[in-house]
């Protein structure tokens, strides 16, 4: 297997707009994604720095405030091909469902990236729900 697909989701007891405000800004990814320590955004290009000091150049594919959808590709480094999609769904009861989907080649990186995102979302949920 060379390609893998991983999905992680978390329900957050906060309105979708509030959640999107925290995670929809590509320049603030280091504020919620544990293991990313810095980022710079230039148009549709973003470079994040991981906790181990690895620069990860990315292409921002989608940043849609109406759909509350963010998509990006890692364009160099440990992956040959990659697309991650972050969706924030309004569940209609003042809560939201955040879904992070990662497709990558090699498959191992889908799990590494998706696993890290899932852990980050769990911590985001704890933080945001604790702020009520």
């Amino acid at each position: 297997m060379t390609r893998g697909s991983v999905r992680r989701e978390v329900r957050i007891a906060r309105p979708a707009g509030e959640v999107w405000a925290r995670i929809g800004d590509p320049a603030r990814v280091q504020d919620w994604f544990v293991g990313i320590v810095d980022s710079t955004v230039d148009g549709t290009s973003r470079v994040v720095i991981t906790g181990s000091g690895i620069p990860m150049p990315e292409e921002i594919v989608t940043c849609d405030d109406l759909q509350r959808r963010f998509q990006y590709r890692i364009t160099a480094g440990l992956v040959r091909e990659h697309l991650s999609t972050l969706d924030v769904h309004d569940l209609g009861d003042g809560t939201s469902l955040v879904v992070y989907s990662c497709d990558a080649d090699p498959a191992t990186m889908a799990l590494v990236i998706g696993g890290a995102a899932g852990s980050a979302l769990e911590q985001l949920r704890t933080t945001m729900e604790g702020q009520r």
Partner: peptide, 9 residues
């Protein structure tokens, strides 16, 4: 904890 950890988290 996992070894494969480029995010060093």
């Amino acid at each position: 904890q996992p070894f494969l950890d480029p995010f060093l988290r």
